[in-house]
Design a protein around this nucleic acid. Structure first.
Length: 1172
RNA sequence: GCCCUAGUGGCGGAAUUGGUAGACGCGCUCGACUCAAAAUCGAGUGCCGAAAGGCGUGGGGGUUCGAUUCCCUCCUGGGGUACCA
């Protein structure tokens, strides 16, 4: 009797469900194994044959591990929040919940048919409040934590609060002056709640910040970078613009190093690790300060209108400096703004000195202060003493400084100056000098302050440290060794200093260039490699060559990377060189690469030249040397830079997890944990609110709370729910914790994780971040979530196109358009189209004229086309419709194409293409062939194959095995169903091997079958086949090589068939080996063998080496590496005996001519090679 | 451009550590069964050649007794990423 897969599948699906065969509970006495598939998003389109590829593989693996005695966790659920359902809601008003539920139902139905062993009792859906309660809870943990770099781990935010309460943030290494001003413990304790919250926000792991985002007006939402393609939204292709918005972020950058180093501990493919490494983009280099080379550095962001044409370099400018001093009052106002805006970035020397004189350490109160139009480095108002620290720049600004001193003197101040070097090398002496001068001075405070208003003092002091960035520009470089060749500087057009650096003379040029940059889309920026830029008019000083270098802006420097500024080294950087060539800037060669003929520009090889102290050094050593020197001189410091940015965590959308956050006075506060889950509110409309907020903002009653506070209207992104779902599976119904400690401890982490590599950087990086965070907080026992990762390849579709004659109408035709539209289509076999290629585009008249000259095959084809046209031509209203020979191709459903040939009956069921009066031009085989090509499987390409259809025709077991038989799991391959018959044949032959007969008469249902097996003892040959198979299948499953497993099953079956083996001793264990692949077939036969339990709870047969041991081997014997003979020889023969046997072989003697071989190579059990 | 990955018969693919290249399946050819078809079973099938033999794993070169496998170089397809300093 034949294998009735429909009945068998129906029977066991029900049985497995009724008996909860795949339900798993924690069993401490069993070793655990966690096999997980990547969370699917249930799309409305349902599964196509590509989706289950990974699920089948993981299911086989999970079933195999169970048979091997492991307690296997193998769950499935849905990543149910997402844009498609919301987009559908916007279009139709259908609530996303409804759309999603429906899609999940479809998915589940499809999955069930394939016979997966998921423990469905553990299913989770991210959109359920029972689930997202814990997503919100984890978010609150992230919000309530900060990253302590000292211990390299996350800590609860209260530890930071109490640190500040005791120490303030002075001298705290993690304090970034860009973020907030310094404060003492006393100050902290006196801060208002709001002030404290604002400061703590700079440290929270989930934090808010204003940042430029990809704003898409049409979708009414912010898009992630990978959701933006070519400057348009990936979904819908709407325009995207940059816009500043307050957004939630996750401080993933703090974890960059651990995310990087953690990769080394993982069993992932190198490709995948590389992708993550590239994404994190760690680069080691230096942050180097370049001072500005003009009075501007002293004048601090003086608006360019006050600076007169400094286009020539400052040393060339001469007397113009004096005029710079006019307009002091207005300048002061500008100064104040700049002082506030840029009160950060003191030079290293200033900072060092400040630490020694602050807090009245010398007995005098020093502060930063605005005096006239200058912000002086340090001033003691009571003594009227000003201390200035000068960098190398002082060399170029002596004149300006002299004037500055003069002005300050006029206000009654004494000015003393120190060089950077003095501060670094002889600090004690400096301090003593300050002390001595201060002590000497009479109190002159009254006169000193005479020119200043109170307002200014309050505004500037004491926070206006440092002289603002305009005095120096930090650059990031990975090639500090080439600094002697830095002949110009380039900053990003978006750089915040562009305005301050632009001189009056260059204003127009810069404005024009910025306008040009803004006008360019991302596509244009990517496609053209044009070298563009503009000169700001300002100069910086190369700290090592002490030469002035011009500062340009150019779009090849990105605002978001490094400091948004580079030192350009045209000698050893491709882009810098092109830029220098275009703008005529000097190129100083700094590396001699003559010893490395293959080295290209930018390669880190060669010997340094023209580089002062570095001359003669190899690049590698030079990098180290110069870094030391840079740090010694206080010009800069070593710095590790990451490409990785903090992860945007806000979405202005409806269909996502609401934030458990309430704003009071615009400060966000967490909801108490007891109020979780904060449920997604209902809304009247799913359309974005229009003001940039999500549709949730439309529900005012929900947003505005009675106490005057407001709820957050953003929702969390797609990756929120999917960043921790694998933990929830361990304890999916727990309403006290996201998962109980003991269950987390039992299941640990995912042992095998399978999915597509589209998640390579997004999901996998975020999930690792969450996991590491939860690990830091002591909630999970492991610091990496996915030990072993396998990426299944994509299954591509094989698209098909049907060809027809084009509707080309010459204008002289007087046939009305409406008539032409009704004109019959003439479908032409692709074979004929290919043959007629030489005639394409010619008019039929012309072809007719040269008909006799055409080769026969063309004549033949064109005649066929003619007769079709004539058939239509006979209908008067269509006369003259075709003038030119041309074809148009249309996608045709792959379901109506067999091989290349169109299934005409099937085609006629497609109203999209076929109409009653269509005509066909068949080729010589009587077929209409189609053009075929491999493409992505997609609805729009009509090449989607639904697994339901395949299962309907071949059964689930066959479908599963065929998916595996297609090729290596991790390789992409087209779905070509050609070979499926082979697998179907295997299933039927395997079934017949057991000699099954139906016990019930035909038509009386399907209940039990009887097998015809022998209880005879198995022969060595049979046992060898069995054990060879046991070993091969176990090995291949372990290394996830499933295609070779299927081959082995076929080989095994062929061999058993040859031996006519029907022995139970062989077939029963073999059945278990096959069970992971064909769960239905094997379960049915297992029961028919008289077993009561499920085969899927049986034990995998033990492999016995002894059955494979051979006493002889037929050696292939090669002469000079070419196989010339096969000689069977005993395996225990010694080499001499073997050599004699081989050389005496007739076949071999033909080649050796009886002479002694030069060499005799013998690999036991493998090969013999004779060299003559 | 850079990173990753692959390239083997008509097709999907196998060869796990350098050891008989093309397992297994599809397709194709021939045969058996059949009135016939389907299904099933049997034989054959890398290319050239009548044969001996030669050639053959994208191309070229190298290491080795022996290379699909290791090295160098070039070409092509797929994926990722990108003015990343």
């Amino acid at each position: 009797m034949d294998f009735d897969f429909k009945e068998v599948e129906k029977k066991w699906r029900k049985e497995w469900e009724d008996k909860e065969v795949y339900k798993v509970t924690e069993a401490p006495n069993l070793p655990k194994y966690y096999v997980l598939d990547m969370f699917p998003y249930p799309s409305g389109a349902g599964l196509h044959v590509g989706h289950p590829l990974g699920y089948v593989a993981s299911d086989i693996y999970a079933r195999y591990k169970r048979l091997k005695g492991f307690n296997v966790l193998h769950p499935m659920g849905y990543d149910a929040f997402g844009l498609p359902a919301e987009q559908y809601a916007i279009e139709t008003g259908t609530p996303p919940q409804v759309t999603t539920d429906k899609a999940i139902k479809t998915y589940r139905g499809q999955l069930d048919k394939i016979g997966f062993s998921f423990d469905w009792s553990r299913q989770v859906k991210t959109c359920e409040p029972e689930y997202y309660k814990w997503t919100q809870w984890i978010f609150l943990q992230l919000f309530d934590s900060w990253y302590d770099r000292a211990n390299n781990r996350a800590e609860n935010i209260f530890t930071l609060d109490s640190y500040f309460a005791e120490n303030g943030c002075i001298n705290w290494p993690q304090h970034d002056k860009d973020d907030h001003a310094e404060f003492t413990d006393v100050e902290w304790n006196n801060f208002s709640v709001e002030e404290k919250q604002k400061i703590l926000m700079h440290y929270r792991i989930a934090y808010q910040s204003y940042s430029e985002v990809n704003w898409c007006e049409a979708l009414g939402t912010v898009l992630a970078n990978d959701e933006v393609k070519d400057g348009k939204s990936e979904r819908g292709g709407y325009p995207v613009e940059r816009r500043k918005m307050r957004q939630w972020f996750l401080r993933i950058t703090e974890y960059a190093d651990r995310l990087l180093s953690g990769l080394d501990t993982l069993d992932w493919s190198d490709a995948m690790k590389d992708m993550q490494r590239n994404w994190i983009g760690r680069s080691e280099g230096a942050l180097v300060q370049f001072h500005l080379s003009q009075t501007l550095s002293k004048g601090e962001g003086i608006s360019s209108q006050y600076i007169l044409t400094p286009d020539p370099s400052p040393s060339e400018r001469g007397a113009e400096q004096v005029r710079f001093m006019t307009g002091a009052k207005e300048v002061s106002v500008k100064n104040l703004e700049h002082a506030k805006q840029h009160r950060k970035e003191p030079t290293e020397a200033e900072e060092k000195l400040w630490q020694e004189i602050r807090n009245e350490k010398l007995g005098f109160k020093f502060r930063r202060h605005l005096i006239d139009k200058y912000i002086v480095d340090f001033v003691c108002l009571f003594k009227g003493l000003i201390i200035e620290v000068d960098g190398d720049i002082h060399e170029f600004t002596k004149e300006e400084d002299a004037i500055r001193t003069l002005v300050l003197n006029q206000h009654g101040f004494t000015v003393i100056r120190f060089a950077n070097n003095e501060v670094f090398n002889d600090l004690q002496n400096v301090l003593e000098k300050i002390k001595a001068t201060a002590t000497e001075l009479n109190e002159r405070i009254d006169s000193a302050l005479s020119g200043l208003s109170d307002n200014q003092e309050v505004a500037v002091s004491p926070l206006s440290f440092g002289e603002g960035q305009v005095r120096k520009i930090p650059v990031f470089t990975t090639r500090p060794d080439t600094i002697f060749g830095a002949t110009f500087m380039v900053i990003a057009p978006e750089h915040e200093l562009v305005t301050s650096l632009t001189t009056a003379g260059q204003q127009k040029e810069i404005d024009d260039y910025i306008a040009y940059v803004k006008s360019r889309t991302d596509v244009e920026r990517q496609q053209e490699k044009k070298v563009t830029g503009a000169f700001t008019g300002s100069y910086a000083v190369n700290p090592f060559t002490n030469t002035e270098i011009p500062i340009y802006i150019a779009e090849y420097v990105l605002a978001g990377y490094g400091t948004g500024a580079i030192m350009a080294v045209p000698a050893d950087d491709e882009r810098d060189r092109k830029f220098a060539e275009k703008f005529g800037l000097p190129i100083i060669e700094v590396i001699d690469k003559s010893a490395h003929p293959n080295a290209e520009i930018g390669d880190k090889v060669g010997t340094m030249i023209n580089s002062g102290m570095l001359n003669g050094k190899e690049v590698k050593d030079a990098i180290k040397l110069i870094l030391d020197e840079i740090e010694k001189q206080g010009i800069g410091k070593r710095k590790v830079n990451y490409r990785l940015r903090d992860a945007g965590y806000s979405r202005q959308r409806y269909w996502g997890e609401p934030f458990p956050i309430v704003y009071k006075n615009d400060i966000p506060y967490p909801l108490p944990v007891g109020e979780l889950p904060l449920r997604l509110p209902e809304v009247d409309s799913y359309k974005p609110s229009g003001d940039g907020r999500s549709p949730i903002a439309n529900n005012k009653a929900w947003v505005n709370l009675p106490d005057g506070s407001q709820r957050e209207t953003d929702t969390m992104p797609g990756y929120a729910g999917s960043s921790w779902y694998f933990l929830r599976y361990m304890d999916p119904h727990n309403d006290k914790e996201f998962a109980a400690k003991d269950k987390l401890k039992y299941w640990q982490s995912v042992d095998l994780y399978l999915g597509g590599n589209e998640h390579a950087v997004g999901h996998l990086l975020y999930a690792r971040l969450w996991h590491k965070f939860l690990y830091d907080m002591g909630y999970v026992p492991t610091d990496e979530p996915f030990k072993k990762l396998i990426n299944q390849g994509m299954i591509q579709g094989v698209s098909a196109w049907v060809y027809r004659l084009s509707d080309i109408i010459i204008s002289s035709t007087e046939t009305p358009q409406s008539t032409l539209e009704k004109r019959p289509q003439i479908f032409v076999s692709y074979e004929i189209c290919k043959t007629l290629k030489p005639l394409l585009g010619k008019s039929f008249k012309e072809i007719e004229g040269q008909f006799d000259l055409l080769p026969d095959d063309l004549k033949d084809c064109i005649s066929k086309v003619y007769s079709a046209i004539n058939e239509i031509g006979n209908v008067p209203e269509f006369m003259g419709a075709f003038d030119i020979l041309d074809f148009t191709s249309r996608y045709v459903e792959v379901s109506v194409v067999d091989g290349d040939a169109l299934n005409i009956d099937g085609f006629k069921s497609l109203p999209r293409l076929w109409t009653e009066n269509s005509l066909f031009v068949y080729d010589s085989n009587g077929e209409i062939t189609c053009e075929r090509a491999v493409e992505k499987m997609s609805k729009s390409k009509y090449n989607v194959v639904n697994p339901d259809d395949v299962i309907e025709k071949y059964g689930a077991d066959c479908f599963r095995m065929f998916e595996m038989f297609l090729g290596p799991l991790d390789q992409s391959k087209p779905w070509d169903q050609q070979g499926i018959d082979g697998v179907g044949k295997f299933i039927r032959r395997f079934w017949r091997l057991f000699g099954p007969t139906q016990t019930l008469p035909e038509g009386e249902g399907f209940n039990a079958i009887k097998l015809n097996l022998s209880d005879e003892k198995a022969s060595p040959a049979e046992l060898k086949i069995l054990h060879k198979t046991i070993k091969k299948i176990a090995d291949d499953i372990e290394r996830l090589s499933f295609n070779t497993c299927v081959s082995q099953f076929m080989i095994c079956l062929n061999e058993l068939n040859d031996l006519k083996c029907t022995k139970r001793e062989i077939l029963e264990p073999l059945l278990i080996v096959l069970a992971p692949f064909a769960p239905f077939l094997t379960e049915e036969l297992w029961q028919a063998l008289g077993n009561t339990g499920s085969i899927h709870k049986a034990a995998f047969p033990k492999f016995e080496e002894k059955y494979l041991v051979e006493s002889a081997f037929t050696y292939p014997v090669s002469i000079n590496g070419k196989v010339r003979a096969e000689i069977p020889l005993a395996l225990d023969l010694d080499e001499a005996a073997m050599k004699a046997a081989v050389l005496s072989n007739e076949n071999i003697q033909k080649w050796t001519n009886g002479s002694e071989p030069k060499k005799f190579i013998f690999v036991k059990g493998r090969i013999i090679n004779v060299v003559v």
